[in-house]
């Protein structure tokens, strides 16, 4: 080993000891190695008990988000050389319950994603024989940015509101709702208002913008939330003052289980 760098990992082994603790490892400082490569090295050669999630190693599967020196980051796309001389401190993503070591509980996030009804909702059923929907490049561009979310949850870690208010549906989920709301093939805005206008919805956001700074894919959830607030405010007042004028959802697209 020519050059090395120290990695300090916040470990949590609930079956062995009740509190998290720090453990330090020394790994080779190889050119092109990401923080994830260091974790793989540790697991393979130093300590088989270290646990973390990873898969694609190319920044698209969204598995390997962690706190690196206090900032949320995709560890496969964050490089050791940038942290010389070290040490590098690695912790599980902030604002989540930790299951073990660097692995967080993502069930709550998954529920929030689903709560915004992230599927194409149409008033009329379209058949394959009807062919493709037309969508010009400009119409695609209107929502394309919001399709790029990889569900890595870095924005939830960065968001101070998520940290204080566990009911907040959060940046990625609102951006995903907007991904469908701005798709010209979709007519489900009304069905999504229920979640986005409710307690924990878009209006809980205080527009600090940390989510957009943390986003590795430049989805800009802050922008998505801001745009929703304009549309949502109109709907909110309609519902309050003149409920009849409020947009009633025709359907929400859900396919029910039949017993």
């Amino acid at each position: 080993m020519d050059k090395t760098i120290k990695i300090q990992v916040r470990r949590y082994l609930p079956e062995k000891q009740p509190d998290p603790f720090w453990q330090e490892y020394e790994v080779p400082l190889e050119p092109k190695w990401g923080v994830l490569d260091a974790l793989i090295y540790i697991k393979d050669h130093l300590d088989g008990s270290l646990s973390y999630r990873w898969s694609c190693h190319m920044g698209v599967c969204g598995s390997c988000g962690m706190m690196v020196n206090g900032e949320p980051a995709l560890t496969c796309a964050t490089f050791l050389e940038e942290y010389q001389p070290g040490p590098i401190r690695i912790e599980p993503l902030a604002n989540f319950k930790v299951l073990r070591d660097l692995i967080i509980d993502t069930d709550d996030f998954m529920g929030k994603l689903k709560s915004v009804k992230p599927w194409l909702i149409t008033d009329e059923k379209r058949d394959i024989t009807d062919g493709e929907n037309r969508q010009t490049p400009a119409e695609l561009k209107a929502f394309k940015q919001y399709t790029l979310c990889i569900n890595c949850m870095l924005c939830y870690s960065a968001c101070p509101v998520v940290g204080l208010n566990e009911d907040f549906v959060g940046p990625a989920a609102i951006a995903l709702a907007q991904r469908y709301n701005y798709d010209n093939r979709d007519s489900g805005n009304a069905a999504r208002h229920d979640t986005l206008l409710a307690h924990g919805g878009a209006f809980d956001c205080t527009l600090i913008g940390e989510c957009s700074r943390a986003c590795p894919k430049h989805v800009d959830p802050t922008g998505a939330i801001q745009r929703y607030k304009a549309d949502g405010a109109m709907e909110y007042w309609k519902r309050l003052i003149w409920p009849k004028a409020a947009t009633a959802p025709k359907n929400d697209g859900i396919v029910k289980q039949i017993d």
């Binding site: 010009t136 119409e139 929502f143 093939r185």
Partner: peptide, 13 residues
């Protein structure tokens, strides 16, 4: 496409 996949498009949509 009907499920919303954001396929790239020609100018005519």
């Amino acid at each position: 496409e009907h499920w919303g996949c954001p396929w790239s498009r020609e100018p005519d949509g």
